[in-house]
Amino acid sequence: MTQLTQQILSGVATGAIYASLALALVMIHQATESVNFAQGEMAMFSTYIAWSLVQVGTPFWIAFVLTVVISFIGGVLIERIIVRPVENAPVLSHVIVFIGLLVIFSAVAGWIFTYTVKQFPSPFPTKPLLGGAVTGHDLGVIGVTFVMLILLFLFFRFTPLGLAMRAAAQNPESARLVGIRVGWMLAIGWGLAAAVGAVAGIMVAPILFLDPHMMSGVLLYAFAAALLGGISSPGGAVLGGLIVGVLENLVGTYLIASELKLTMALALIIIVLVVKPSGLFGAHAVKRV
């Protein structure tokens, strides 16, 4: 029983990380109907930025905030410079550009920081809490993600900019007619997604350790989470992330060897897409052809 509680709680913690990255994917999908395959590598690169800041003696939380800000600016620039020219191009062009970004981030990280695996500090106490049911890091991750989600919710719900971004994503033409600069809304969306991804990267790095391929597995789980929750639903993506995180831990402990974790995520993705393309909470379905 204790083991079960422990598995569920640590599943919620990793699930929170999947939820963050899934949310980043959904934010870009809402506005552009495409999936940013480079989201994971962008998060990985952000994590290296945080690591470098910590290395030169920056206190952890200052490094955290700086990294989030830098990632936001980076995301905005990427949208303006690289993604914008193919905005109206067909799907294959988007895919190629996103894969190009993925490869470049991975290569540049390897080039600058080498492929040696690095330790990443956790800002939370590592000792077990609640009678061994959960580690301090797990609780910290859950707390940070929760705060971030609340902030995002408040931003989209109650600020004029958040409202404008939702309007631009829903009906770009009508949004222009009320004076919203839709192109900038997309760029800010990319910035926010990059910032959210950076938080996910920083939270997962103490567990997975830092290397240029760190996020590829996490991205797979984020795909599964976003699709399970419904790629058209931000709330669904968050719940999907938590479900996938818990499921991963339980299945990995009780059913299938953890060496097949990625295959399990792949299977989940295929099952959702074939059986229920709208996901659990999505409003409208992924179009079938």
């Binding site: 409202l163 939702r166 829903q170 033409e173 009320v178």
Partner: peptide, 27 residues
């Protein structure tokens, strides 16, 4: 210049109140 396009350009997933508030965005 406020333009009500063909098909009304409603933001269907926003509330009525949010639709009005977004109308004031450009002023």
């Amino acid at each position: 210049v406020a333009h009500v396009p063909e098909g009304r350009g409603t933001f269907v997933k926003l509330s009525v109140e949010e639709n009005l508030r977004i109308g004031a965005y450009g002023r």
